[in-house]
């Protein structure tokens, strides 16, 4: 399916041009543009982003994974509370999960102190009954991309 093929190329490189996509999938560039625009409009493509290794910058942000236990509401269950939590700009990822906790969040701040404030803020929300905060010490992989020094192509340039 063209949509899947285009998304696959975009997921591995969001900056790929529609010309490059058209060349490598051997389809018309106009079709590539039309498909991407459709996928953007219907929300399949949510956002183009960049995976970074902030350690290289020398000023990596502080991230934590926070688990939350939530008392669901009668009518809306978890959704209304989820919406409220997702609105915080410091929440990077947010999932409803199975198991001992209900939500898991990844939050980001500049310092440990920022994270402490975030936890306090979250804990003060009614319905949230318990939190567990895990600071992230090192990033190995994000969205399928292994973080670290680039691996060199190991094949010879020419071989029989």
């Amino acid at each position: 399916m063209i949509e899947v093929d285009i998304l696959e190329l975009l997921k591995s490189n969001a900056r790929i041009s529609s010309k490059e996509i058209s060349d490598s999938l051997d389809i018309e560039e106009s079709l590539v543009k039309k498909t991407i625009s459709k996928l953007q409009k219907n929300g399949t493509i949510v956002r183009y982003t960049t995976i970074t290794n902030d350690e290289k910058l020398g000023k990596a942000k502080v991230r934590a994974l926070i688990e939350l236990t939530v008392r669901p509401e009668k009518k809306s269950g978890f959704d209304r509370i989820a919406k409220k939590i997702s609105e915080y700009p410091f929440v990077i990822d947010h999932y409803l999960i199975s198991g001992r906790y209900d939500f898991v969040l990844i939050v980001e701040g500049d310092t440990l102190h920022d994270i402490a404030n975030i936890v306090t803020e979250l804990a003060s929300i009614a319905h949230i009954t318990k939190t567990a905060t895990h600071f992230m010490l090192k990033k190995y992989k994000e969205m399928g991309a292994v973080i670290g020094d680039l691996e060199k192509e190991s094949r010879l340039i020419v071989s029989p």
Partner: peptide
Amino acid sequence: PSGIRAFFDLVIDAKDIISLGVGE
């Protein structure tokens, strides 16, 4: 001597190339 080897020796120092020369 292998013709492919001779060619390999010529290209070994080339940088930033796209290789369609591999056999694997």
